[in-house]
Design a protein around this nucleic acid. Structure first.
Lengths: 270, 270
DNA sequence: AGAAGGACCAGTGGTCCGTA
DNA sequence: AGAAGGACCAGTGGTCCGTA
């Protein structure tokens, strides 16, 4: 299970679609997120990682050097739209990941978009990077992180997963949390928001409410809820989710004590 | 159990000895370190906290304001040797805690010294401050520290425990760890070093070896050992202790694999 | 407009080294 | 000399806001 360092790196692509991900579908990819299966089940459209305009594409990998694990495969792959397209001079075209759109479970985003299965897949990848960082730390007798820290993001970047970054991952943590804690609700929400044609921001906002409801059922301890889930425990509880839980708890407590309200968990003031 | 915020603060002193500590011996002081009992059992010599030359003596307390818990007792107490002794101008005489000396269990240091029971007592106090910080954080729905962090040290200072500071506490953590994990060995070491007339630094150094031996017996996982102990789990594993465990493990593993050495755990290269 | 992410910032863990 | 602790520093968690 040390094959992930280069998960993010690539074989040659062939689809004309700039679908973002891939996961060395060969060579039994341990963790196996929903995403790969979906994609594997769907068309053979994958390949090609980031469009490494800056010549640095894949390289180094492995956090603080050494520990190269396995692979040393495919090189090359400088082709991609966006790359070398513009003027001369260095070719740093400022590549960004395609924006997310609300997709239903199993749906692969079309056009220059990424779907939500892919989003969740990124969380699984981060987990794999964390595990590697932990293994290296243990080997060296160093402090061993229990969460996805800056160190892990740095490691991911070094390993070539340039499409992983801290602001993005933190931004959608609670969406991933809902996916982990109540996949049915998460899926239903995705379908509903897709149908309504809502944008990602709206969907993201909507993920808070069912999470707060889950917290309500479990004594409001959102930290405990995160920590009790093996894939979620490695993520910091987002500030806003914590605040919402706290606010709603106070509200529910007040309602209960005055017995003015009947519902309890149903009137988020947001 | 919210009576600790002012543990460190004082009643009027009366001993001519500048013994440093005290612990509102009345009003059942929860945790109850070895130290208080010892002192309570011994002479009624205590009182007087820090010689607050800077007028700030006791005040504020309670981390980010509010939450004043109990007490509001005794004020005053500016008397103390060292204070106002020197020239005019502000009276900031630069007070430091008296240095530690190696004492046996139950022994109170004489002269301008502090004993080791007092040292360990400081760790118990930090734990109490942490618990208060945690309670406040939970109440407010904020992130809740699991370790003695900067925030806790800041809180302790605000609560009047100026004699607690991070460098000191970090410096002796492993000594406290030995005290927690194997009090008999810890006590024996103290007696031996006192008898030999060793200074605190020598004793401190000597605390590493038995800890490494404990780690050896328990699979070398010093983090797990700390975390398994309720009073120790709130302290970060000191870097040097971690390194020693790692080095000795490697060494033991090498010895075992070549079967050249007989001992195994007994040849720390330090 | 909606969204991705470089880059900043306050406060952290860690401990050195000027101080007494 | 041995020791206490102010204060510094590299790297953290957190997220804003200039960018595309």
């Amino acid at each position: 299970t040390t094959h992930h360092a280069l998960d993010a790196l690539s074989q040659e692509g062939l689809s004309e679609e700039p679908v973002q991900q891939q996961e060395k579908e060969a060579a039994g990819s341990g963790g196996g997120g929903v995403w790969e299966m979906v994609v594997a089940a769907g068309g053979r459209k994958q390949q090609r990682r980031r469009k490494n305009c800056r010549g640095r594409s894949r390289m180094a990998a492995s956090m603080d050097d050494d520990d190269d694990d396995d692979d040393d495969e495919t090189e090359g792959a400088e082709d991609d739209e966006n790359c070398g397209g513009g003027g001369g001079g260095g070719g740093s075209e400022r590549q960004r990941e395609h924006p997310f759109i609300v997709t239903e479970p199993g749906e692969v985003a079309r056009g220059k978009k990424n779907g939500l299965d892919y989003l969740f897949h990124l969380y699984e990848q981060c987990r794999e990077f964390l595990i590697q960082v932990q293994n290296i730390a243990k080997e060296r007798g160093e402090k061993c992180p229990t969460k996805v820290t800056n160190q892990v993001f740095r490691y991911a970047k070094k390993a070539g997963a340039n499409y992983i970054n801290k602001p993005k991952m933190r931004h959608y943590v609670h969406c991933y949390a809902l996916h982990c804690l109540d996949e049915d609700t998460s899926n239903a929400l995705r379908r509903a928001f897709k149908e309504r044609g809502e944008n990602v921001g709206a969907w993201r906002q909507a993920c808070y409410k069912p999470l707060v409801a889950i917290a309500a059922r479990q004594g409001w301890d959102i930290d405990a809820i995160f920590n009790a889930h093996p894939r979620l425990s490695i993520w910091y509880v987002p500030t806003k989710l914590r605040q919402l839980c706290h606010a709603e708890r106070s509200c529910a407590a007040a309602a209960a004590s005055t017995s003015i309200s009947g519902g309890g968990v149903d009137h988020l003031p947001f």
